[in-house]
């Protein structure tokens, strides 16, 4: 036992012993704990309003049993339901940090970040053939355009972290100040609609330009100038929420 006289070697051996104890302990108790949590999860999710589509997978990204669940299937739900489901799963005794498969986990993963300008092209492709229409002289989005807004929200979803400018434009008819106000109201309405569909609010800026920026090649009085434009301004790196703050993303 002479070699144990050296303190550093003894300490290192002690650490190795700790590691082996943890590995063996984890091998025996880990799957049981994860299974126990996974058993309680579906009832809790259903109670919180997540239905049967949302599933909690108690596995780490590398496949080991974990007490931090990955929640899948939350795409069709709205933000408040997602938040409620996240809080409910977090409240299971023993469960840890919630990750959503379509939320911040995308940012932390090693997958290549999508080029944000690509998002702008997607949205412009959508809006080329169809416009977001409003009711006469008001900022209420009319019913058929709601589906288009949902598609725009879908196209903007991968642009987490991008700052998107929503600009409302009108044609020249009527007083200038009223046009600016109306175009701003409409841009704000689109902004609210997108927020309701899950795009983070601090990434959306709305403004109204009235008839000051007509489409290139068109006269300002042309009614085709009445439109909503989206522009991706910049990307801010997303700060993922810490593991122990269960949220909608």
């Amino acid at each position: 036992m002479q070699f144990l006289r050296s303190p550093y070697l003894a300490i290192a051996l002690g650490a190795l012993l700790v590691f082996m104890l943890a590995a063996i302990g984890g091998r025996f108790t880990g799957p049981g704990l994860a299974a126990q949590l996974a058993q309680q999860a579906p009832a809790v999710i259903e109670k919180a309003g997540g239905g049967t589509r949302v599933e909690a997978h108690f596995r780490s990204p590398s496949g080991w049993p974990s007490r931090h669940p990955l929640l899948t299937g939350g795409e069709p739900l709205d933000e408040t339901t997602r938040q409620a489901v996240a809080l409910a799963v977090n409240a299971i005794p023993g469960a840890g940090g919630i990750r959503w498969s379509d939320g911040d986990a995308l940012v932390e993963a090693d997958e290549a970040r999508l080029n944000p300008l690509h998002c702008q092209e997607d949205v412009q492709a959508l809006l080329r053939a169809r416009t977001i229409r409003f009711e006469e002289s008001s900022a209420r989005i009319d019913k058929p355009s709601r589906a288009l807004i949902a598609e725009v929200a879908q196209a903007l979803r991968p642009c987490l972290g991008a700052i998107i400018a929503i600009t409302g434009h009108t044609d020249k008819s009527g007083p200038d100040a009223a046009n600016i106000a109306l175009s701003r109201e409409r841009a704000l309405a689109v902004r609210q609609a997108l927020i309701a569909r899950g795009i983070p609010a601090d990434g959306l800026r709305a403004e109204g330009k009235g008839s000051h920026e007509p489409v290139e090649g068109l006269l300002p009085s042309d009614p085709a100038n009445r439109r909503i434009e989206f522009e991706v301004l910049a990307t801010e790196p997303i700060k993922p929420t810490p593991v122990d703050t269960p949220s909608a993303r």
Binding site: I11, V18, L21, A23, G26, G30, P65
Partner: peptide, 30 residues
């Protein structure tokens, strides 16, 4: 984090604390 990794971190912290306390006692008595 996998469960075994969390166990390892906790046990390592306990080990380090134990070492520190043990060393303090040893230093006192010598």
């Amino acid at each position: 984090m996998p469960i075994w990794m969390e166990l390892f971190v906790l046990m390592l912290i306990a080990y380090a604390l134990g070492l520190a306390i043990g060393w303090a006692i040893w230093a006192r008595e010598n």
